[in-house]
Each structure stands twice: as structure tokens, then as C-alpha cells.
Design a protein around this nucleic acid. Structure first.
Lengths: 251, 251
DNA sequence: CGCAGATTTGATGATTCTCAAGCATGGTGG
DNA sequence: CCACCATGCTTGAGAATCATCAAATCTGCG
């Protein structure tokens, strides 16, 4: 398995500036979001100039590593990226899972180094943005600046989502609901989806033992909240799941 | 006790544009930080124009409330501010404590409303910055923009500091060390300081029961790690405390 | 002085972790 | 094609950390 760092050296093949790139990149949710913020066509062109399409990365590939010098942020275009730290004793701490349309690396600006690892959980495609260049561009494009502010602001809130002291059931329900909603935002089905990460990763993220995750999911299944086959999830009773998650998500 | 929202209506008395304001505001750590980032004198003047000095606020006063429309960020100049949410059942969740030199409100950009309450824990002085105006200014002053990016980026990291699944002792040690370091950054003593928040607030922040906080602190005192009289803390063995906190803080 | 709120302390209990073993699953090579 | 292995997942039993409940103590303040 290739576990090298591929992020700082984007594959030249996927950077080809062929005629399809503009259309191709219009599927990049990050650009889309900027567009939605009122950026005009020429502004979008400026963005395209500094986008690098990276990938495909495969499960286990690192997007960046903790301690690497910070150079760029990236928008996930396809697949799932896990961010995590490793403490001095080698124990991993999962910080988050990042779905298509979400941006990673924003927590590296302060410190000039990535404070965590970013690892592909499946086949991942990225849009890479040199940060100095996008920041420079943002001084000319207020909408872009505003969008960057918004993205970072949201990450602050997301990071404290699971900060509370809730039960294992509540955290798991919140995890499933949150995952479902984020998928729905990008046009995926909110009822049927695949958990691309291992039980161990979920457990770590939710501050639980993997055994607890397994037991909670089984109980959810027994109470007809969800149906689970391997990593495939079908949500059967969204209202009740949302009710359980309410204490964590607050809406 | 006055528990009204004072933030959106700064006290006119402290906004007086007398000759001392420039010197006065030079004690505002936010401006200082921007200065340190290489802003020249005229840039600083631009900042001063849009600063509003707010305060003094007293213990229990709200700086802003969850749900209030987002208009401004604020730098703490003196005192301590607690940010917290309240869930549908009325249970509070403490998100953080903010010391002089730290900025609050950055998590409100996304959503256009404050996602949490901000409450003064003691006598608090603030610098208030209209966000639309400071964002506008940031397009002209790349150093200011960069500073805002940095502040938000740091908040992402801070929010996930206590995300890990650590023991009560480790979290408390990390809390004390982190508090001490942040005070030291601003020139306060890192060995002797006052915990301006209640045990209940600390407990909530660390996901513990107040009783657990009490017991952990007593054990710390018995092992000569710290000396505690009410809310006054003296750290007696910083190396050992830092060692305990290592798993949480990672440095 | 006495009251209200905060903190401490002790006893008990429950959620969750740990340890250990069994069971699927998916890929590999014979 | 099937046995085999590695990995991840599940399940059960026992243990431990930490929360809860109850009550005493302390503190600041009117």
C-alpha cells in the first residue's frame, strides 16, 4: 500500500489544462460555494487558475501529515478524508471526517504547519488551493474572503459539536444524523449511505471503545432505528434518531 | 444583577475619543498582535477608527446571546469571558474561557448569528470590531486579513483540544497548564493565578461532575502538584503537571 | 448573625472500558 | 475453486472510572 505523502506533489496528469477543466471544476463544491456567494465569472476564472486537481488517492494515502509545512488547503471532491493526531504514546485521536464539498487544512494557518494528519479512507479526489495565493486573491475578491471566513468559522463550531458530555447513544445518534445531513447537503441520499470509516475510527471520534460502538449500533437496529449491513446504513426512523441527537446537535 | 445584553450597545462613556485613546488602545492585545504582524502606523489608525471600547462589564453580564444577529467580534482586554450553549432541556455546555488578548465571536460568521452565549465572569473590558467593517478593511490590509485567518485557524485547534478521551486527571492537568500558558503569553504569572470561573464551569468544560473536579484538585494538592486556596492556584511542580497534560496538549 | 450559594466529602451505583474469545469477511495462493 | 489467513467486527463477563445522591462545611454578604 502506498502511504507516501501525495498532497504536496499533485499528479501532473490530473492538472492538464484541457478544455474540460472548467466544466470539470464546476463540480468542485468549493468553487460552487464561492459562486453561490456572488462571485462573477471572471472571479471564478481567477480561482480556476490556482486550483490544482489532486488524485485519485487511495485508502490509506496521506493528503498531508502532522508537522508538514502548511502550504495549501484542499476541498474534498470525492471520497472521505479522515483527520487525526497521534499523541506521543502513539495513540490516535480522530478529529473529523470530511465529505465531498468540505475543506481541510484550515486549522494549519495558525502555526504554519499541519497540526494533524489527513488520510484518505477510500478513493479521494481533491481540489488543492495554494493558501498564500488564495489569500492574495481574497484581498481582491471580498466574496472569496467572506467565504474563507465562513468556512473557518464553521469549522470552529464543528470542532466543538461533540464536546459535550453526552451518552454513548446520543453521540452515536448525533454522528449518524450529522453524517446524513452533510450527505444530503451535497445531493446524496440522507437515508441510505455507507460509513466509509472503520468502527474503530468512529469509536475514536466519539470517545468510545469500538465494542461500545458495536453494541450501540446493535441496539439501534433492535429498536428499528436503523438497518446496518457491514458499513451500509439505512436510517429507518429519522425523527426518533434526530430526537436522540438533539442534545448534541441542538437542532 | 444586571444580565442584560450590553455588547450591541457599547457604553458611550468608554467610547470617548479623548487624547488618551491611542495609548489606551495600544494595550488592546488584538491591535498589538496586528502590529506585530507588520502593520504600519497608518494601518493601525484605520483599525482604531473602527474599534469600540466596551465595558466595564460585571460578572454575569452577557457580551452576546445565542441567536443574536452577528455584527461584531471582540477582543478581551481585561477579565474573563465564558462562552457556552444551552440545550433544549436547559443544560449548559461550556465551550471555552477567554482571557485578555483573545478574540470571541469568530464562530458566529458562519450562520450570521452567535451560536453561543458569552458571559463575563468578572469585570471585563472589550474591544469591539464591527465585522463587516473589519472584513472590508482586511481587503485593504493583507496583514489584517492574515491575522484574522490565523485567529480563526487557532480557534479550530483550540476547540478540538479537549476532544480526546482522556482521564479526569489528564484533562484537569491540561486545563491548568493551558490556562497557565495563556496567561504567560500575556505577561501574567504562569505559576500563580486565579481561576475566575466556578468549579461547576470547569467541570462542565472538562465533561466532569463538579464533585470530580473537587476531588481531582484535592489529589493534585496532596501530591504537591499545586496549592489551592479557593480559586487561587499556585503551581508547585510544573514539569510533572505538564507531563500529565502531555497526552491532551501534545506539547 | 444568619442565609444563599458554592464547594467539599462520603457512599453508592451505573455507564462504559478492558480483556478475552468467537465470528464474519475479503483477499491470496495453492 | 476452495482452503487459508489477516483483519475487522461482534459478543460476553468482569472491572474501573466517574457520576449521582445526600449531607456537611465553608464563604461572602446583607
Amino acid at each position: 500500500m502506498n502511504s507516501g505523502v501525495v498532497f504536496p506533489r499533485p499528479n501532473p496528469k490530473v492538472l492538464a489544462d484541457d478544455g474540460d477543466e472548467l466544466r470539470f471544476c464546476s463540480t468542485c463544491a468549493f468553487s460552487q460555494a464561492c459562486l453561490a456567494e456572488g462571485m462573477d465569472k471572471s472571479a471564478l476564472m481567477d480561482l480556476h487558475v490556482l486550483v490544482e486537481h489532486v488524485g485519485p488517492l487511495h485508502a490509506g494515502d496521506h493528503v498531508f501529515r502532522e508537522g508538514d509545512p502548511f502550504e495549501a488547503i484542499a476541498a474534498v471532491r470525492a471520497g472521505t478524508v479522515k483527520t487525526c493526531t497521534v499523541d506521543p504514546e502513539g495513540r490516535e485521536q480522530v478529529l473529523g471526517f470530511h465529505l465531498p464539498g468540505e475543506v481541510i487544512g484550515l486549522n494549519a494557518i495558525h502555526g504554519d504547519r499541519y497540526p494533524c494528519n489527513a488520510v484518505a479512507l477510500d478513493t479521494v479526489m481533491l481540489c488543492r488551493f495554494s493558501f498564500p495565493r488564495i489569500a492574495m486573491l481574497a484581498t481582491r475578491l471580498p466574496n472569496l474572503q467572506q467565504q474563507l471566513f465562513r468556512l473557518m468559522s464553521r469549522d470552529i463550531g464543528v470542532a466543538s459539536l461533540f464536546a459535550g458530555n453526552h451518552s454513548a447513544d446520543e453521540r452515536m445518534a448525533a454522528f449518524l444524523v450529522s453524517f446524513s445531513r452533510r450527505l444530503a447537503e451535497r445531493g446524496f441520499s440522507p437515508r441510505r449511505f455507507q460509513l466509509t470509516m472503520s468502527r474503530t475510527d468512529i469509536a475514536n471520534y466519539l470517545r468510545q471503545a469500538p465494542e461500545t460502538v458495536s453494541r450501540v449500533l446493535r441496539r439501534f437496529e433492535q429498536s428499528k432505528l436503523v438497518s446496518i449491513k457491514q458499513r451500509d446504513v439505512e436510517i429507518l426512523d429519522m425523527p426518533r434518531l434526530e430526537a436522540m441527537a438533539l442534545a448534541v446537535l441542538r437542532h
